[in-house]
Design a protein around this nucleic acid. Structure first.
Lengths: 331, 331
DNA sequence: TTGTATGCGTTATCAA
DNA sequence: TTGATAACGCATACAA
């Protein structure tokens, strides 16, 4: 490997390390003459500063940790895409971790990010997380954290979310406008911020249209295929909905599968709408209208916010919650 | 942030840095007594070694670079998942980069990985790459690289691939067994290794079943939706295939879309089979049998191989090509 | 068994 | 304008 150091350049040119260092950083206290010489030589030998040494010196790693529940999920991989596009522009690199929805892994992963000296963290919480002391302790140490999508119930922090209330409201309203009366709501576990917000939007849309909220039609559902199967089965058999509003990519997939594998008269004319970023939503066996989150843009915003915080390390950047609009795609 | 260093521990306990360092590394030349004291204190103050300092010292970063064309692609995100699962077990962290199929970005990204001092690289080549000098020069520097999926035409290197020939053969044979005679083949640009191998498998299956290869039925197709549209249109109008074998996730998506948006008598009974890892293949509007690559496992293997190379830095690990079987899923 | 001193590559302070 | 030197945190060769 090419391991030219400042020292090598200094020796070759018969000048001192510090002169070389300063010349490379274009310091004003170095003569144009030596500057030119140093830069030319550095280029000739293809010198690159050792970022690890720089990190040690500056106590910065120029890396940002990204923690998501699952990489192999459309929504999250699109967010990561957005984060990467901004981070790489600013010469930060992105280090990715997944929790696989485990609280334990979330704790250890955050530890890892901290001990690896990432400059900051962008995170969407795991499904299991309902205690936030690990978050608080990281925040108390002034470690910059941007939360996105699944955010903690903490006031003073940076958040990037989509307008879940509004998205769910729009989805539900759309179903109502299509003449649906018994709109079931299958959603993620109640601990998640997104679950609560979407549920509220769903309920509000019903109320505003004088449809009574029937708690039997609201089902919290785990992410295992069998969970969806049980829920769908119970729902269709006993509750006779005329439509279903499914939240989250994983749930949408599982529910569609459950319905497909267990077709019935009732399930035939079921109106479906999903809160999902599935790329294949328009190609499915049954039309799936969707509320689509601006995943890529959320990643961009999160990264921009984090970098803003990092670059202004001395001044305080006000805590801020960025809320992005969802898109209703009718199919 | 918690910035306890070895020095702090040494001062607190009134012993020297080196004793602390050795005690923490469980050196045999330190008494059990002091070892215990040091470890207890380190734990009490929540000491974590600074990995950047360690990296500088050991000239290792414990990070592995991963370069893929697109993160937000099922296949690649599953591979990354597999890489992550192995890497994190071995305390390596995964730094992700994407080329967006650009040769330029591939070059600059590799440069970046090198200058960032990643310990090794796992990469799938971009679509545009048809010159391999950047690869050669990295390899000449003895930088450990594992190629996967889209590998370069270089003999002496580490590769993890799936058996594309066999996969395409199986797919084609399956279509033949279903009675199809005019099986079109829509595939990625010819520069890619996977393209050539799959094409060979396709042709072999035809020949073995006494079906003449018709070059008009073989279409190379770019990854833009309109590319697929043009290809599908020409194919159906002029070539009248009775089935299509589509390679790659992106192409499958685009082709399905093109067919759906432009339905015709001919396209109605078209048999479709895809070389894809789409999670929704069983939920599509038209049954899509698939050849599924063991993406997660490919990631695992690639990471295992890389870590093997890294850990045995002195002995030479023989160049090796790992070939994994694909799965034919009939729908 | 423990301590002293040095170096990894860089930047910055202080002198010259 | 340049150079000598220390420091970032850690690990180790060499001394004691």
């Amino acid at each position: 490997m090419n391991n030219i150091t400042i020292k090598d350049i200094a020796n070759a040119l018969g000048i001192s390390n510090s002169t070389v260092s300063r010349a490379l950083r274009d310091s004003h206290e170095i003569s144009e003459d030596t500057k030119a010489k140093v830069i030319a030589y550095a280029k000739a030998v293809n010198y690159h500063p050792n970022p690890i040494a720089q990190s040690l010196r500056e106590n910065k790693s120029y890396s940002i940790g990204v923690i998501v529940p699952e990489i192999a999920n459309n929504y999250f991989s699109e967010v990561i895409n957005g984060i990467d596009s901004v981070a790489s522009q600013h010469d930060y690199h992105v280090v990715i971790y997944q929790t696989h929805e485990s609280y334990e892994r979330e704790i250890s992963t955050i530890q890892h990010v901290l001990s690896r000296k990432a400059d900051g963290l962008i995170i969407s919480l795991s499904l299991e997380t309902n205690d936030y002391s690990h978050i608080h302790s990281a925040m108390e140490d002034n470690f910059p954290i941007i939360f996105f999508d699944r955010v903690p119930p903490i006031e003073n922090c940076y958040k990037v979310v989509s307008d879940n209330y509004e998205g769910a409201y729009k989805a539900t309203k759309h179903m109502i406008e299509k003449g649906k009366k018994r709109i079931a709501h299958i959603t993620s576990p109640p601990v998640l911020s997104i679950t609560k917000e979407r549920l509220a939007g769903y309920k509000a849309a019903l109320k505003d249209n004088n449809i009574e909220v029937d708690d039997q039609l609201i089902k919290y559902c785990g992410f295992e295929p069998k969970d969806a199967f049980v829920v769908i089965d119970e729902l269709i058999k006993n509750q006779k909905p005329d439509s279903i509003f499914v939240c989250s990519d994983r749930l949408a997939l599982n529910c569609l599968e459950a319905i497909k594998n267990n077709p019935s008269e009732e399930s035939k004319d079921l109106g479906l709408i999903g809160y999902t970023n599935l790329k294949t939503a328009n190609l499915l066996y049954t039309p799936l209208s969707t509320i689509r989150q601006p995943a890529f843009e959320m990643g961009e915003k999160a990264a921009e916010l984090l970098i803003k915080v990092l670059k202004s390390k001395n001044q305080i950047v006000d805590f801020e919650t960025i809320i992005l609009k969802n898109e209703l795609i009718i199919r």
